[in-house]
Design a binder for these strands. Structure first.
Lengths: 347, 347
DNA sequence: TTGAAAGCGCTACCAT
DNA sequence: ATGGTAGCGCTTTCAA
């Protein structure tokens, strides 16, 4: 047994030679795409070990025209929810032998499309504001045989794009009901979007539900403005604004957890206790929601399962070009400490 | 001008034919690796446009033996600091035409090494607990010509690995001084690590600085246990533990911001006001530190610059195999609302 | 200044 | 059950 001199690159045919088989057989041993006798498998593996052989996946990709790579495009890496989802996707992808390119939001999708094509990614997950992505870009990807899945189908006409939607509308509905159960009726909504933003269903769902459950036609809402940031600071700001309007409220819900965290801070700063004086609810059930003070009542999308499903659908479409799947995730209510029975039952 | 029938894949030679030049010339136009006359450049570009040509970067990678791809390995995607750094790295990488593989912590480095080699990544950033990575794995990467940069050089002997260290020791030092300036002397440290964990400098630095500034030989510390989680919940837990010991303290510092957030929650729950009754400081200056209640005094590593520099060093080593760089980032103190002058100046 | 052609390491078809 | 071999789309040397 010879000492490995320098780590000279070694290729398939070196292994073949040492094992006394053909190059093709080496390939087949590694790809398991056809039967190879146990004896040869052993010899090949031994030789590969000996030479510290590493098959070149890029060369394989060139031939197969598929790279075992997916891309995840997000417009907000500061969003804990998005990170949790990406984490789950990467985990699933890894388990299936796929690598995951992470693509941040500096550039918009359109500028990434050509790169995705040139790098032959097999699938793309778009976790972005629908308003920011162009139908043409998606079609271009699809035309090239790249599977695409999105968090919100809104605005996308191509029947080939998959979608796994987060059901924010249902989430809001559950929250309004939760508040009603606690005896609240003066419920305010802190939305980072206003009516002019057509893709968000939360504000609309809030209106519908307040109407449905309380016959309230004009519930109090405080809205942000472009660029529609749903951050802690924005939540803080909108909560202050709510207080300054003098509107009555005993419960507040927000576009997401981050905003709820900011809103709680604003209330606490102003001497209002949560949940004694105001109940506050968020949305998304990010990790921080468990550990805030008080711990946040919110809506969970089960981000881990969600991410796994995203990859699952992508994989299905990659393997069997044509599946396509359009689903919606059912969220669930997570009650913690930030919401409580309404004290002032009379008005 | 013909209508694009179906989006048939088109390759370099199709473009060459349409432009009336050789395949080589098309390559050179795109790679800019040798002079091509303006006239031909124009013809090639026109033809490429017409055919919607996308050069196959994987094929190029096979020949060049380099994929214009880096990998980022993190053992904790739930850490906001790590995410901020990854975001910065990806941004830099993108600007240089590199794609970024994100690799989460399910598996340890060792199990990723072969994949990195097979996929011919050009460089790897390791943002992991040094205890979890094996010298052999790193050498294997390096032997294959893959550049490696780490957040902490501790325990790595190979002179070829780069390092850009976060200077936690200096951070702790600045914090102790900050507390001293505010009149505190009863300072406690909530550490997710204990003395048995050799890679963390914070606890040691705390001891040194308490000795140096106060002549205090046995400052109060409360430590976590394996698996050394520095989460909000762990901070909460350790703060409770601190209070239960009956030890005197007017200021508390923590392994990181997350733990500080948890600690504040614990104090607040127990009726201690921050910073009136206890000053609390964190470490890392994550996004949330700005928006907590009260806003957290902490140490900033300037994660954006840090990430950019990480990629810069990696790139240098990729381009000019042999540079290597070992640096340390100087942190800075960020004073916010969670620390204040010590009330009980006596005792 | 440009082109021809020999690979890069692999896959998958066609043989046997 | 295995091997031979023609590509995949590109880079880069060599020659013109």
């Amino acid at each position: 047994m010879e000492e490995n001199k320098r780590s000279e690159q070694c290729c398939r045919d070196d292994v073949a030679r040492l094992a006394g088989v053909s190059g093709a057989t080496v390939s087949y041993v590694f790809s398991r795409k056809r039967y190879v006798s146990p004896e040869l498998v052993r010899r090949v593996m031994r030789a590969a070990e000996e030479l510290d052989y590493h098959p070149d996946l890029l060369a394989a990709a060139v031939r197969r025209k598929s790279s075992d790579t997916i891309a995840v495009l997000t417009d907000d890496m500061a969003s804990p929810l998005q990170i949790e989802i990406i984490r789950a996707i990467q985990e699933s992808a890894m388990n299936s032998g796929y690598f995951t390119h992470i693509c941040g939001g500096v550039k918009n999708l359109d500028s990434y499309v050509d790169d995705f094509i040139c790098r032959k990614v097999d699938g793309v997950f778009l976790s972005v504001d629908p308003a920011k992505v162009n139908n043409k870009s998606i079609e271009k990807l699809l035309d090239r045989g790249i599977s695409v899945i999105i968090t919100s189908l809104r605005g996308f006409s191509d029947p080939r794009v998959c979608g796994l939607e987060l059901d924010f509308g249902a989430g809001v509905s559950m929250l309004v009901e939760h508040f009603k159960d606690l005896g609240h009726s003066k419920i305010a909504f802190l939305s980072c979007f206003d009516d002019s933003y057509e893709y968000d269903k939360r504000l609309k769902s809030f209106g519908n539900n307040m109407q449905r459950l309380f016959g309230e036609a004009n519930p109090v809402t405080v809205c942000g403005s472009p660029p529609w940031e749903s951050t802690i600071d924005r939540g803080y700001e909108l909560a202050k604004k709510l207080m300054s309007t003098g509107a009555e409220f005993t419960a507040v819900m927000c576009t997401n957890d981050l905003m709820a965290l900011g809103a709680m801070r604003a209330f606490q700063e102003s001497g209002l206790k949560v949940p004694e004086d105001v109940s506050v609810a968020g949305m998304d059930d990010i990790l921080f929601a468990r550990s805030s003070y008080p711990a946040l009542t919110t809506i969970s999308h089960r981000s881990l399962e969600y991410g796994h499903r995203i990859f699952g659908i992508l994989k299905q479409n990659i393997d069997n070009k044509s599946v396509v799947s359009r689903e919606r995730i059912s969220p669930s209510l997570v009650v913690r400490e930030s919401t409580a029975v309404c004290k002032s039952v009379n008005k």
